[in-house]
């Protein structure tokens, strides 16, 4: 009888399996441009070793939180390229023209990004103090409070 109970439990536990996501680490932070918080910016983390990236949008205080998928916050653990953009390619109102003119962040932070960030298991807080006059210089990015020089491509 005890044996029967144990074997039933084993049977049940064998039936459970994971969802197949790679290891994720939670990422939050604040995006500022010349010291002022940027709202409505799309922050995209792209893993350097390939795979699905994570996206977050900044709120009025410039705070973002990355989502890997809906209901799965975080980003793949490891080194990421980061791009930050405010251009809205899709009009919310379906009959208005989409515009890319809203871009207020220099090119070197989005399409030709040189920003990188390391996502660690557990929680990582990564702030992006951006500079509107930045060209292709490597910007200074702070990881978890400490300032680190971001590496170039």
């Amino acid at each position: 009888m005890r044996f029967a109970c144990v074997s039933v439990l084993l049977f049940v536990s064998v039936g459970c399996w994971g969802t197949g996501s790679p290891p994720l680490g939670a990422v939050t932070g604040i995006v500022t441009l010349d010291g002022k918080p940027v709202s409505g910016a799309r922050v995209t983390f792209q893993p350097r070793d390939g795979g699905r990236g994570s996206v977050g949008m900044t709120d009025a205080e410039g705070k973002y939180k990355l989502n890997y998928r809906q209901g799965e916050p975080g980003a793949v653990v490891g080194l990421h390229s980061v791009s930050i953009t405010t251009a809205e390619r899709e009009s919310r109102d379906k009959d208005s023209k989409p515009s890319e003119s809203r871009e207020s962040i220099p090119n070197s932070y989005n399409e030709q990004t040189t920003l990188t960030a390391e996502v660690e298991p557990g929680g990582t807080e990564i702030d992006f103090p951006l500079d509107s006059k930045a060209k292709s210089m490597a910007p200074v990015v702070s990881f978890s409070g400490k300032s680190v020089k971001a590496s170039e491509h």
Binding site: G20, S21, T44, Q46, G51, R52, G53, S81, S83, E111
Partner: peptide, 17 residues
């Protein structure tokens, strides 16, 4: 195709699966 597939959408370059 799994949604975990390698995909770098940030740049124009065709550099992901």
């Amino acid at each position: 195709i799994s949604d975990n597939i390698d995909h770098n959408k940030s740049t124009a370059a065709i550099d992901s699966a």
